[in-house]
Design a binder for these strands. Structure first.
Length: 967
RNA sequence: GGGUGAUUAGCUCAGUGGUAGAGCGCUUCGUUCACAUCGAAGAUGUCGGGGGUUCAAAUCCCUCAUCACCCACCA
């Protein structure tokens, strides 16, 4: 065997062997009559490359799957990828752009061919990367959320598309899906609607302008402001109403100005008309001043302009008050260029405002109220023009340059100075919605879209978690889940993209809708009319919401669906609880009436060592593949598993991974030691039949760690499971058992040597088995290297031994031996005894139990404490250092080597510490309430502790006294 | 504006009622035949502040402070 594990060389070889032997296939290694255990992989984007988050998520899944597989469950880990509508279309369009091509120059079918071609070429990347991590998915079942879609090339067959379409049609028929013109989040970059969840609200520096809307016909009113006590603080005659806005360009689409019904300041003018201070003077529009509960009298001027087509709040007000919504922008958020010239549109709008005319929604939408000189401008360019125009006209509200409201980032055109009036433009932090993919500011847009009426299917999803039919762990995420579902809004599912599942709805010439799985059926429904299909596709999450049943063959009642659904565990990051987990719950319950999974384990985010989210722009991204290259997949996996404490973000650093790489090397060398000492696995070895104390002890320790590991993993406490294994392998097996075994193997009689070899081989095997779920590669390699085996380690039998292997007497004895060795080592180090020098141990007094323990383990103690001999003496000689152990006193005659003062200091320090402990224990035991109320075992433990500490203190006090007599 | 979580050794973090641990780092020593990707020994903590419950609090409750994240329509 080499000195260390060559991960780079071994990993691909081992991976190939696992796959070649079908080790990961559904049901592989299942015991007869085994219970199913299934996990659905969160499908990574087909465009994706493996990042640390994937590595984390999939490591945890693999640990669970490998553990269950070894335990003989009928396992399925279902892999696959997601077509990721927007993300993929974005990538392919970018690729096309490099070749000077654009989607707009080709037909839909042509573009989709490009996407499929791209998917074929690079869609397998992430799958290969998952394999490098060691993910033991049943790769023969690799699924894709667009398989079987029309236009899919050979090799992309499957029925996922059919399942998605069937669900859409069913939900449409039940009325769970509807179409309507609504204000939706519009991404001007991708030119599509997106759902609420795809919007990120980001606080950005912005401005709030204050403008005057003149009252129609030069009317005036007395504007009165009062303080909280009702004292008048301002009273003046005004011919305008002051409006504050962060988006002046939307003034063009105003349909009204709203004030709160209780706002005394504006009561005189409610019902009047005021003028929008933009556009050609001769066609300036007048709009009504209305009341609504929405305006907050304490914010801004208390008056809000109502632009129903470009603001969600305004939309609500407009709907309530019957104010028309005038759309100002096109799909790119440029001001509209279509429709009649401004003069004509403004005239019609004015008739509406005057109450002389009523527009239908469609008529209002067709009206382009953008003044001619602003048409075609980008929204931000338009904003500047509008502000300039109004300011030039003198309709900006003026204030003094030292007005604190202006803030340091306020726009202050013209002269500076406190006495100089400037337009009131407040510098303000504005929370603005951004597209999570495009990063551009979202424009609320009035468009026709498809929606899932989530309120109608949310009930069962709430109930399933409330009742515990599906468990969400850690518990805190239940609240998040409940909160979101209890306040759920309709889900916008249509996207104005080409890559995705096209909505199965057709329209006839009159606009009547026909929803059917195929065009032929839609035509039949219509009675044979010519139809055109809705061009939109479905939100990616609509199809991934069907991932559990879709991958198992639904709507066919396949054996896999029968066997593995509902799935056992879902492992997901908290960031997609709403996007994915909640929607899978709702949709599976709505479609097949059952929960998609029993347990949901929600893990945290991986961050960099400074706790920042990893992002390309910061440049702090750790590439898992590079980490695997550098440290091996096992090291990365063990690190992630060790850090997977529930509910907390984890900060990943290379140092930590290096530490666990070293752990692998440690294991490797323990196995190497075993090999070099002829420790071969013995068929039929019975761990309960060993006779040597040290062997009994390590067998018991092995049982302990198996129990601890399994309990931890059953509760999804991955870090505890990994920690227990680490402490056992390094802290018990390597630090002690291997060292104990050395003298036995070198000097023991034939029987002892044979038993120790067999035990050592067994212990190493147990280490490999127990570590395999977290460190599959190195353990598989060692498994094969140690001996010829019937099966690969991936299919080895998981042990079930329990506490019956723990021998209390062996435990106690080895605890005593280890304690004694540590004590002697500690004294040697503190007294500066040269490490290589062997010293004599004097046995001053020892009870029968200690005598026996010492005798059985003398060779080990001598070796590990570096003793030259052990000599019984009648009394502690002068100059010997006292070594106190339970039931015994030893001495180290190292007088000529030590400094009396130093030894005195050592004893005093130890005594002081003991004294504190004794005082604490005494204090508790002297308190009658403690003895009465505390559990018996706690009290007993305290008593035993006190006795042991007191005995030790006594011995050390004696030693100190003796030392004083010398000095 | 709501909500959730965090605050423990120099750093990163475990620890859900019994008197505080790990890894890394640090100090000293070590070429003992598995391993220097190692070994031995060691130092370092008013467990964020304050109050309460309890025989007993890092742990439960209240409060304050700071930080992080999520959700949210203040023009």
């Amino acid at each position: 065997m080499d000195k260390s594990f060559d991960a780079a060389a071994a990993e691909s070889r081992i991976s190939d062997a696992w796959e070649a032997n079908g080790c990961f296939k559904a049901g592989a290694n299942a015991k007869p009559g085994a219970a199913p255990y299934s996990i659905m992989i969160p499908p990574p984007n087909v465009t994706g490359v493996l990042h640390v988050g994937h590595a984390f998520n999939n490591t945890l899944q693999d640990v669970l799957i490998r553990w269950h597989r070894m335990r003989g469950f009928d396992t399925l880990w279902q892999p696959g990828t997601d077509h990721a509508g927007i993300a993929t279309q974005m990538v392919v369009e970018r690729e096309l752009a490099k070749q000077g091509k654009s989607r707009r120059d080709m037909t839909r079918a042509e573009f989709l061919n490009h996407v499929w071609a791209w998917k074929k070429q690079s869609g397998g990347t992430i799958v290969k990367q998952l394999k490098r991590l060691g993910a033991s998915c049943d790769w023969s079942r690799l699924a894709f959320t667009m398989s079987g879609a029309p236009g899919a090339p050979a090799g992309e067959e499957g029925n996922f598309h059919d399942a998605v379409i069937k669900v859409f049609v069913d939900m449409y028929d039940k009325g769970f899906i509807y179409r309507g013109k609504r204000l939706v989040n519009w991404d001007p970059h991708f030119e599509t609607a997106i759902s609420d969840l795809e919007v990120e609200n980001i606080e950005t520096a912005g401005h709030m302008w204050h403008f005057k809307y003149p009252l129609a016909g030069g009317q005036t009113y007395e504007y009165v402001e009062k303080d909280a006590d009702g004292n008048v603080t301002l009273s003046e005659t005004r011919d305008y109403i002051s409006i504050a806005t962060t988006r002046p360009e939307t003034m063009l689409g105003d349909g009204a100005v709203a004030v709160h019904p209780d706002d005394e300041r504006y009561k005189p003018i409610v019902g009047m008309l005021c003028e929008i201070p933009v556009g050609p003077k001769q066609h300036r529009r007048l709009i009504p001043i209305i009341t609504d509960d929405y305006p907050d009298p304490n914010f801004g001027s208390g008056a809000v302009k109502i632009t129903g087509a470009h603001d969600f709040n305004d939309y609500g007000v407009a709907k309530r008050a019957g104010i028309p919504c005038y759309r100002l922008m096109d799909t790119r958020a440029h001001l509209r260029t279509d429709g009649a010239p401004y003069a004509e549109a403004a005239r019609i709008a004015q008739e509406v405002a005057n109450g002389a005319r009523v527009l239908t929604e469609a008529e209002a939408d067709a009206l382009n109220l953008v003044p001619d000189h602003l048409r075609g401008l980008d929204r931000y360019a338009a904003r500047q023009r509008v502000v300039d125009d109004i300011t030039a006209e003198g309709l900006a509200v003026m204030t003094r340059a030292d007005d604190p409201r202006l803030g340091k980032d306020a726009l202050k055109p013209g002269a500076e100075g406190a006495e100089t009036p400037v337009p009131l433009v407040e510098a303000k932090l504005i929370t603005q919605p951004h597209g999570d993919r495009s990063k551009v500011v979202i424009e609320p847009m009035l468009t026709d879209q498809w929606f899932v009426d989530t309120a109608r299917i949310v009930g069962p999803a709430l109930e399933a978690v409330r009742s515990g039919r599906t468990r969400i762990m850690p518990e805190q995420h239940r609240k998040v889940y409940f909160h979101w579902l209890e306040n759920i809004e309709p889900w916008t599912i249509s996207r104005q993209l080409w890559w995705g599942h096209q909505i199965p709805v057709w329209y006839d010439a009159d606009g009547a809708m026909y929803c059917a799985p195929t065009e032929a059926e839609a035509i039949a429904q219509s009675g044979g009319k010519p139809l055109t299909r809705d061009p939109d596709v479905l939100d990616t999450w609509f199809s991934s919401g069907l991932w559990p049943i879709g991958t198992l063959g639904w709507p066919e009642q396949t054996p896999e669906l029968e066997r593995y659904f509902p799935t056992s565990t879902l492992v997901s990051g908290f960031d997609i609880i709403f996007f994915w987990v909640a929607r899978m719950m709702m949709m599976q319950l709505a479609v097949v009436g059952d929960v998609p999974f029993r347990d949901v384990y929600v893990h945290a985010l991986v961050r960099d060592e400074k706790g920042r989210k990893m992002s390309k722009s910061i440049g702090n991204v750790l590439d898992p593949l590079e980490l695997i290259d550098e440290f091996g997949a096992d090291a990365l996996r063990f690190t992630l598993t060790s850090m997977a404490a529930m509910g907390r973000d984890l900060k990943l650093s290379k140092e930590r991974i290096a530490g666990y790489r070293n752990f692998g090397t440690k294991l490797w060398n323990a196995a190497r030691f075993a090999e070099m000492n002829g420790c071969k696995p013995v068929a039929g070895f019975d761990p309960s039949a060993v006779t040597q104390t040290v062997n009994k002890w390590i067998v018991g320790e092995t049982a302990r760690v198996r129990i601890a590991h399994d309990e931890a993993l059953s509760g999804y406490r991955f870090n505890d499971a990994a920690g227990a294994l680490y402490a056992f392998v390094w802290g018990r097996v390597c630090d002690w058992y291997v060292e104990f075994a050395k003298p036995l193997l070198a000097e023991g009689d034939a029987g002892v040597v044979a038993e120790t070899r067999a035990t050592m081989a067994w212990v190493i095997d147990q280490c490999l088995i127990l570590l395999h779920p977290t460190m599959p590669f190195i353990t598989e390699e060692l498994w094969g290297a140690i001996a010829p085996r019937d099966t690969m380690l991936v299919h080895a039998e998981w042990p079930s031994y329990g506490t019956d292997l723990i021998d209390a007497e062996a435990d106690r004895e080895m605890g005593w031996v280890i304690g004694l060795i540590e004590e002697i080592r500690s004294i040697r180090a503190q007294m500066h005894v040269p490490a290589g020098l062997k010293v004599q141990l004097l046995q001053v007094e020892i009870d029968a139990r200690g005598q026996a323990a010492f005798a059985r383990n003398a060779a080990m103690i001598e070796r590990l404490a570096r003793l030259s001999s052990v000599t019984p003496v009648a009394a502690m000689p002068k100059g010997a250092v006292t070594v106190a152990a339970e039931g015994a006193v030893f001495g180290l005659p190292i007088a000529d080597l030590i400094d009396v003062a130093e030894e005195k200091a050592r004893l005093e320090k130890t005594l002081e510490k003991l004294g504190r402990e004794i005082a604490g224990l005494k204090g508790r035991l002297d308190n009658p309430k403690f003895v009465e109320s505390a559990p018996e075992d706690i009290v007993d433990e305290a008593r035993e502790n006190l006795a042991a500490r007191a005995a030790e203190a006594e011995k050390l006090a004696a030693a100190l006294a003796r030392l004083a007599s010398i000095g």
